[in-house]
Amino acid sequence: MTFTKTSQKFGQWADSRANTVFGLGFGSEQQLAKFAEKFQEVKDAAKLARDKSQEKMETSSNHSQESGRVTPSNPSTPQASSINGTDDEKISHVGPEAALLMSENDRLKTAVEQSNTNAKKWETELQTLQESNARLEDALTESSANVESWKKQLSVCKEESDALRDKIIELEAQCKEVSLEQERNAQLTAKVQELEAELQDKEQELQNLRKQAEIIPQLMAECESITDKLRTAETKNVELDGRIGGLQADADENRQKQGDMQGELKKFMDILDGKIDELHEFRQGLSKLGVGN
């Protein structure tokens, strides 16, 4: 079996012989890592114990086969059971091949005793591994029950989530309707305010018209007075037009006189310019006379 981390807090392993997949959840990532290390440690220990057991069994089998082959090969050699006395006496009465067989037999006995000791130790380790396996199976069973419980809780949570999601969608739709209604109310409020402002303006205009209607007689009297004043002003305007005509004639006459005076002035200026030129030439002549003297 191989333990695989499928997420930060969940792992699973498969038993290919049983065609089963187990999963286990943890409270933290550290617990998951510790469990994975212990899982691998137990797996390695079980593999090592199995390998050692197989090696010991093969060694014992090989020794037994060698002993079985050596003993019947010398029928003329007397057996140790047929010789009475101590071991030294036995060795002294038998040949070197029998002594070799006896020493080999002792070595095999020692190996068998060591194998029995190892077998007991392996049985103890196997018992420990079986207990660990039982605890793991209990933990897996509990985990499976927890997974089923979590699945049920998850399904319940999903149903609640779906119900809440539908409720949220319904509330959002209601909120949209409320917002649209609020916008309509705001538009209606703005329209009412505009109408109220227009009504106030109309009332103000009506009040102004009433005030103007009150002062209409006064305005009519003032209008008649202004009409009289206008007639008087028109009469004065006719008189002023006559005066303006006389003044224009006087102005034209003055303008004619002014033109004549400008002509005479121009002639005088021309004569004056000639005189100035003559005086200038006379002065230059005097200057030349003064320089000659």
Rank of each mutant, 00 (worst) to 15 (best):
D166A: 10
K275M: 12
A49M: 04
D201T: 13
L286S: 02
L108R: 06
S7D: 07
D87V: 12
S179N: 10
R69K: 14
G27H: 12
A18F: 05
E104H: 09
F22N: 06
F268T: 15
I83S: 01
K43E: 10
A18R: 12
S16V: 06
R231H: 12
Q40W: 00
K202C: 03
Q12N: 04
E203P: 00
Q8E: 13
E234H: 08
S179L: 14
L126S: 07
I216Q: 09
A139N: 07
L24R: 02
Q127F: 00
E281V: 12
D260V: 12
D88I: 13
K5E: 10
E104M: 11
D250M: 02
Q207I: 06
N84K: 15
S82D: 15
N105C: 04
E113L: 11
C223S: 14
T4S: 09
Q248I: 06
S132V: 02
E137S: 11
N208R: 14
F22E: 04
K56S: 09
A80M: 12
R50T: 08
H280Y: 05
K167Y: 03
K152Q: 12
V192H: 10
L108C: 04
N293K: 14
D87S: 10
S149N: 08
T117P: 00
Q248M: 08
F282Y: 08
K151D: 05
S81C: 03
L24H: 00
M57D: 09
T77S: 13
S64W: 07
D87M: 11
Q256Y: 05
A251W: 08
R184V: 08
I91Q: 05
R69A: 15
F22K: 02
Q256S: 10
F39S: 01
Q153R: 08
E29C: 01
Q284E: 14
V291C: 03
E239F: 06
E142G: 05
L171D: 06
T189E: 11
E131P: 00
A119E: 03
I91N: 08
Q200S: 09
N185V: 05
S161C: 07
Q8W: 04
L136M: 05
N146C: 08
L101Y: 02
R210C: 02
N118E: 11
S60R: 06
Q200F: 03
T4E: 13
T2A: 15
G292R: 13
L289K: 09
E196H: 07
C157N: 13
L171V: 09
K56N: 08
V147N: 12
A36Y: 01
E104S: 14
L279K: 09
I169H: 07
S64N: 11
L199D: 04
K151T: 04
V70P: 00
T86Y: 01
F26W: 01
A18S: 09
F35C: 04
G274I: 06
N105W: 05
G246L: 15
S7K: 02
E55G: 01
S61K: 14
E104G: 10
K267I: 12
H280L: 04
K191H: 07
S103F: 06
G290R: 15
P75E: 04
T124A: 11
K257G: 03
I169N: 09
A190W: 00
R165S: 11
N208I: 05
